[in-house]
Amino acid sequence: MSSASTTFTMPPELSAAEPPEARGLDRDEVRLLVARERSPVRHTTFRALPSVLRRGDLVVVNTSDTEPAAVDGHRADGRPVTVHVSGPAPDQLHVVELRTPDGQRVADGVAGEGIALPCGVVATLLTGHPDPRVATGSRLWRARIPVAGGLRAWLAEAGRPIRYSYVDRRWPIDAYRTVFARSDGEFGSAEMPSAGRPFTSGILNALHARGVGVARIVLHTGVSSLEAGEVPLPERYRVPPETADAVNAVRAAGGRVVAVGTTTTRALETAAAPDGFVTASDGWTHLVLGPDRPARVVDGLVTGWHEPQASHLLLLEAVAGARLVSRAYAAALEHRYRWHEFGDSCLLLPAQSVRRSG
């Protein structure tokens, strides 16, 4: 997998350790950095987003709900372990990640191992994922988790949101859900599609008043803890007909398609033909955006701030170009923006003079 051109060192103290509400802010009062081609970087708050966009633009959001996908258990030798349920796999299996109670990756899992979980449930590791030939030490596993009544109902009782070490206490599941999250009966996202977190009903109303459309897709994301060099894994997505029609109409009229998050971008680009025409579709996306596959339909991107060497940086560069992304990250570090799911936001608006083609 290619490496992003954007390189930087993130001071640990810039990690947002709690939701902005815990700091006395509304969701839409987090900071927003606006990076445009051939314009100075602008520093404002997310509440100003509608004023930055133009009448005729289209904002596309991900409505995937967030599951309480972390559950505590014990290995056969009694060692405590946390199981992160990343999402479904074929054949009634699920993809899981094992972590120690302090958040470290478990590197000695073995195929056939059973993990004792609450309510008498036992998760059995079957094969490594995505490579089923791996029988020891896989980061992700395909596992069988037999639960009477269904996994989602059990997690609602036994689970909690996935939390990494930079978040210093537990927060309720509502802190990890966006204003447009919808449960459609499927297993949702293992981790919040966090670029959408700063949106509020007030922002959505202001977009409408501005003449900016809002359309919806679904992409259920798995655990985000990819290691350096790992390719983004397949994810379930859906681009409904009304969204495909809205995107095509906006493009034909010369407006901009602004995706909220890397998840939305991946879904839209999966549904886009080489000329940028979007067709309603659903299933599993294997698309990896980067130098060999730039964006075809997304003209702008609302995003959070990603860690150094994260695969998300390649996607950002595929939409906005390496120069603009690097400039945005340099400004964010200089002005001490906050990172991660409870952090600040960025709006990338590359030049729109030439429609992208694949």
Rank of each mutant, 00 (worst) to 15 (best):
G261V: 02
V83K: 00
V212Y: 01
H335D: 12
L140I: 03
V167K: 01
T200L: 04
G150Y: 10
D77T: 13
D26Y: 02
T200S: 13
L301V: 06
L155P: 03
A70F: 03
Q352R: 14
R266M: 14
R139L: 15
S183V: 02
V319Y: 03
G254L: 14
T265Q: 12
I173E: 00
A331F: 10
R355Q: 15
V83A: 06
A310S: 15
R266W: 14
S2N: 06
E230Q: 13
T285L: 03
T270Y: 02
I173D: 02
V302P: 03
H286M: 11
A4R: 01
V71G: 07
G185E: 02
E186L: 08
E18I: 02
T265P: 07
L219W: 02
H94G: 00
R182Q: 06
S15Q: 13
R336H: 13
M1T: 11
A320K: 02
P291A: 11
A22V: 09
P88H: 09
V85D: 02
I203N: 07
E242I: 14
D275H: 15
P274Q: 05
E157Q: 05
D282Y: 11
R296W: 05
V218G: 00
G150R: 00
A209Q: 11
R105V: 13
T270V: 14
C346H: 07
A320S: 10
A246E: 12
D292I: 10
R38N: 10
S183I: 01
R336K: 12
P11G: 07
L151F: 08
L313K: 06
V247Q: 02
L315W: 07
Y337K: 03
A272P: 15
A22D: 10
P161L: 10
L155C: 04
T285K: 04
G321I: 09
E307S: 03
D282P: 00
W171I: 09
D174S: 11
G188S: 05
L268F: 04
E191P: 00
S51T: 02
S201A: 13
F46Q: 04
E186C: 06
T270P: 11
A271V: 07
V354I: 15
Y166I: 09
G283T: 08
R336P: 12
G149W: 14
V147K: 06
P146G: 10
G112H: 05
R238E: 04
L207P: 07
G185S: 03
V81E: 13
L14M: 14
G358L: 09
G255P: 06
V212F: 02
V110Q: 10
S15I: 06
L49P: 00
V147E: 08
G255Y: 01
S201L: 13
N248I: 14
C119I: 01
N62Q: 05
D77I: 15
E113Q: 12
R144L: 11
Q92A: 09
F180Q: 03
G87H: 00
D245V: 15
R54I: 00
T303H: 05
G343T: 07
S345H: 05
G321A: 04
G276D: 08
V260R: 00
V250I: 13
G222A: 06
D65K: 09
A318N: 06
T265G: 13
L93W: 02
R75F: 01
P19K: 10
A330I: 03
T263A: 13
D26W: 05
S183M: 00
V258A: 08
P118T: 06
N62H: 02
T262I: 01
A195L: 04
T265F: 11
A259K: 04
S357I: 14
V61E: 05
P193L: 09
V52E: 15
D77F: 15
Y237K: 01
D184E: 05
